[in-house]
Amino acid sequence: MKLRKVMPAIGIILAFMMLATAGCPRREVERTELILATTTSTADSGLLDVLNPAFEERHPFTVKTIAVGTGEALRLGEQKEADVLLVHARRLEDQFMAAGHGARRLDVMYNDFVIVGPPGDPAGIRGMTAPGPALARVAERQALFASRGDNSGTHVRENSLWQAAGVTPAGAWYISTGQGMGDTLRISSEKQAYTLTDRSTYLAQKDRLELEIMVQGDPGLLNPYGVIEVQGAKNVEGAQAFADFITSPEGQRIIAEFGKDRFGQPLFFPLVHR
């Protein structure tokens, strides 16, 4: 095609584009970036894809999400690389606050952990509620167990459950994957091992896993998430606005609704406005 022939067409398209944008007012507000360090579980579940746009609609901040393990998220906060944290490892969060790295910590929501395992249930723990005796039996029968082994919130919880069960897990039956929840579930399914997982990641991948829920419903399996404003962060104002928003009635409503359409049940439960 000759250039001369295309020119009028390009002209017309440009004219339409100008017309189309003529009605739109220029963005008046300058948007500042807000860095949120959070765990893979909140990011992978898709919750932030709903929460962040709602927040950005009301506030002049653009949220940049860094999804890492709770360990790294807290470390990023310590270095003031992140402005606000959304994490789930209460003990580590308290240490973080005690060390003066956080300006404010608020409860946000919870979901729960479940122990999943191969349908054949070699350790015979199906239907147990208390995680302690279930884990003790897994260890006793030396049934394969896959651990995240990555100092994530889930791994920290797993460790405290073993401690409560009075078992120091070690040996060929205890597999430490050092990977995220999704990958660890996949490895568990392949190796037909038990593992501790948050319910939401398991539900999201259930169809492709040969794993079933074995143990659930104990208060010791609840998994609370907290939001922390980083002390002396670059964007203090944004961090406050974000923490206020996800604990506000609107933020809490979004959390309560999330996942109902896809999984038939909510994945997270609000802790402030129920």
């Binding site: 360990g71 790294e72 807290l74 470390r75 990555d150 100092n151 050092g178």
Partner: peptide
């Protein structure tokens, strides 16, 4: 576990 995957893990855990 090899050196590169161990590095990813240590970074994720914040043990730079």
């Amino acid at each position: 576990r090899v050196l590169t995957t161990a590095m990813v893990l240590e970074t994720r855990m914040g043990r730079f």
